[in-house]
């Protein structure tokens, strides 16, 4: 194993990310000084224990063969103590052993949408630092943690057998945001049923979205998934959907940053904070 001689200066990136997590105003200054670059954000979401981290590990290693790759993995902060137990690196042995892949854990710090307050600036900094593929793993999502759809160019929804019947897959929220559906743990009983059920539900809702079966421990199906992601991203580039997504991401970033700056510096001005929060929650709603 080569040790610590990656193309991108990880120490610098790492230190700047800490500033981004704690001081949004300074974060924006630093980011503005760097030249804009093209990058793709691949969102990975799904229930706790569905296998998001292991899958992200596999995907990141695959894309690292072609493009410089970073992973941001978010786990929840305690609403009681503010502390967090960030354990996604455990499932990312391959990616964390790859000297070129940058892996960062983040706590959700009170964000309820499945991401963290500084995620937009984090992703922008990684992009401008030279990472071309950025995987964002959300917190284990229940039903309504759907913020990833505003951040990512493509959302991978990871499902695993044993987490409920087909009524669960018909509910509003998280099932509406996937661009690719993954039935992970394909070796477990119930996987066949989940696969056909997922396809049936998608058909019912008139969506022609790919459903891929994977086993992220053994690696089955990962290559197929990786290819499908690539194909969809290419499609998005051609159809102009990608530039629309980016425009939106930028908008969300600006609003989110404004909200953070207010929270960090003018917390006593509660009304202003509410206004921004309202804007943040309602922006772009009609177009979704």
């Amino acid at each position: 194993m080569r040790f610590m001689e990656p193309k991108i200066d990880q120490l610098r990136v790492s230190k700047v990310l800490s500033i981004i997590e704690n001081d949004t105003e300074e974060a924006r200054r630093i980011i503005d000084e760097l030249p804009q670059r093209d990058y793709f954000v691949i969102g990975v979401t799904g229930s706790p224990g569905a296998g998001k981290s292991s899958l992200t590990d596999r995907l990141a290693c695959m894309s690292a063969d072609e493009k410089s790759t970073a992973v941001v993995a978010i786990d929840p902060s305690s609403p009681f103590t503010g502390g967090a137990f960030l354990g996604d690196r455990i499932r990312m042995r391959r990616a964390t052993d790859d000297p070129e892949i940058f892996v960062r854990s983040m706590a959700s710090r009170g964000n309820v949408g499945g991401l963290s307050p500084s995620i937009y600036n984090t992703v922008e900094l990684l992009g401008r630092s030279g990472y071309e593929r950025i995987y964002v793993e959300t917190v284990g999502a229940g039903q309504s943690e759907t913020d990833i759809v505003n951040l990512a160019d493509i959302v991978i929804l990871v499902l695993a057998p044993g987490l409920g019947d087909d009524v669960q897959t018909m509910k509003a929220g998280i099932m509406e945001i996937g661009d690719i559906f993954v039935v992970n743990k394909s070796d477990l009983p119930g996987s066949d049923q989940l696969f056909s059920r997922t396809r049936a539900i998608l058909e019912l809702s008139g969506k022609q979205l790919p459903v891929v079966r994977t086993n992220s421990i053994k690696g089955n199906g990962i290559e197929e998934l990786h290819k499908k992601i690539g194909a969809i991203l290419e499609d998005h580039v051609d159809s102009g959907r990608l530039s629309e997504k980016r425009r939106k991401r930028n908008l969300y970033n600006n609003l989110n940053s404004a909200y953070q700056i207010i929270k960090e510096h003018y917390a006593e001005n509660a009304k202003l904070e509410e206004l921004i929060k309202y804007l943040l929650e309602n922006i772009g709603r009609e177009s979704k």
């Binding site: 120490l11 103590t81 967090a84 137990f85 354990g87 690196r89 964390t96 052993d97």
Partner: peptide
């Protein structure tokens, strides 16, 4: 975690190299 800190837990059988890499990236 209960004391309000953000703890990155990397689990068993870590080499010194992977520990330092984690410290750097995080």
């Amino acid at each position: 975690r209960d004391a309000g800190m953000e703890v990155i837990y990397t689990g068993l059988r870590q080499s010194p190299e992977s520990i330092v890499k984690a410290a750097l990236q995080e």
